[in-house]
């Protein structure tokens, strides 16, 4: 059994959203939660971020959709999902009973899509927050622009803000020149928090056939390979905005999560690690407690943003 540290306070607040600990599972890596029910004590998690949901079901991209790379993987799933109605009718039944916070990741092709999704999900029992996906690199339509053009990101955030009173997290793309600007505009537009980073756009080629390894040619890189990039961006954004930052990118063990917290993240999301180690998020929670005990800290919030820089 996993050791419990009842005297260590792991609670954090993401704006109005209260979490029992700062460890969430990242969208697209944890299905709709139920897929992991046999293997993970869901009630121990800070929360689950669902697979991205759209207004209508999406079939996703043709195969092959994934390829392993050095210390990481590329994916071009193409936002396959059951659609919001099926999500509410079927997937929420399990999630509601899972004993953890439920954050629904939403995606659309237009500002109106996002606003309608937010309105539809508001008031549904068991949904604790929304995460706006403006940063998926795998759709050819206008979706990418929402994550790369500041005015578009602000428009989506503002429209969703007007449509819901749920806590609102905006997930940022790293595929921009200045991620701090994106963070600042979505804060201004009403986001309660930002989460970063989504995947870095990459590709891989089979030299024998000279064909791309993904049918979509390009895809999103995730896994331990991207952690230093993610950590740098989280540090920069946390210094820029005053809303909470959720760190994502290659987090696979407690030390990784702690680095993000020290850099200024209030919470973290575990992504690709769920795929190869379903127990990763739980192990990270235990590891954070052990670290805090060793460091003589009583609460995880006391280490957030405590990066020590030369000359103070």
């Amino acid at each position: 059994m996993t050791a419990q540290y009842d005297d260590i306070d792991l609670r954090v607040r993401i704006g109005p959203l209260r979490l029992r600990n700062p460890v969430l599972t990242a969208s697209g890596t944890f299905g709709y939660g139920r897929e992991f029910a046999d293997l993970v004590n869901l009630h121990r998690l800070g929360g689950v971020v669902t697979k991205g949901i759209s207004l209508v079901p999406r079939p996703g991209n043709p195969p092959p959709r994934i390829v392993e790379t050095a210390c990481g993987m590329l994916n071009a799933i193409g936002l396959e999902n059951v659609g919001v109605e099926e999500f509410i009718r079927r997937k929420m039944v399990f999630l509601r009973s899972a004993g953890t916070r439920v954050i629904v990741n939403i995606l659309g092709d237009s500002v109106d899509d996002y606003a309608r999704l937010a309105a539809r999900l508001t008031g549904i029992e068991g949904i604790d927050a929304l995460e706006i996906n403006i940063s998926c690199p795998n759709v050819k339509k206008g979706g990418v622009a929402f994550g790369t053009v500041p005015e578009m990101a602000a428009a989506v955030t503002g429209a969703v803000r007007a449509a819901t009173d749920l806590p609102l997290i905006v997930k940022l793309s790293p595929n921009v020149t200045d991620i701090t600007r994106m963070a600042a505009v979505v804060e201004e537009a009403g986001a309660d928090a930002v989460s970063l980073i989504n995947t870095l756009i990459g590709m891989a080629i089979d030299c024998r056939t000279r064909r791309p390894r993904l049918a979509n040619v390009i895809g999103g890189l995730s896994g331990p390979a991207i952690k230093p990039v993610a950590l740098r961006m989280v540090w920069q954004v946390a210094r820029t905005v005053s809303i909470p930052v959720i760190g994502i990118g290659g987090i696979s063990r407690a030390e990784d999560a702690l680095e993000f917290l020290i850099a200024g993240a209030t919470a973290v999301q575990v992504g690709t690690a769920n795929l190869y180690q379903p127990s990763a998020a739980e192990e990270i929670i235990t590891g954070i407690s052990s670290y805090l005990r060793e460091q003589g800290e009583a609460a995880v919030r006391d280490i957030i943003g405590t990066l020590q820089l030369e000359g103070g």
């Binding site: 890596t29 944890f30 299905g31 992991f36 996703g60 994934i66 993987m73 799933i77 795929l275």
Partner: peptide, 9 residues
Amino acid sequence: ACGLGACLG
């Protein structure tokens, strides 16, 4: 990737 129906890869 996962074998569990989560990643849809």
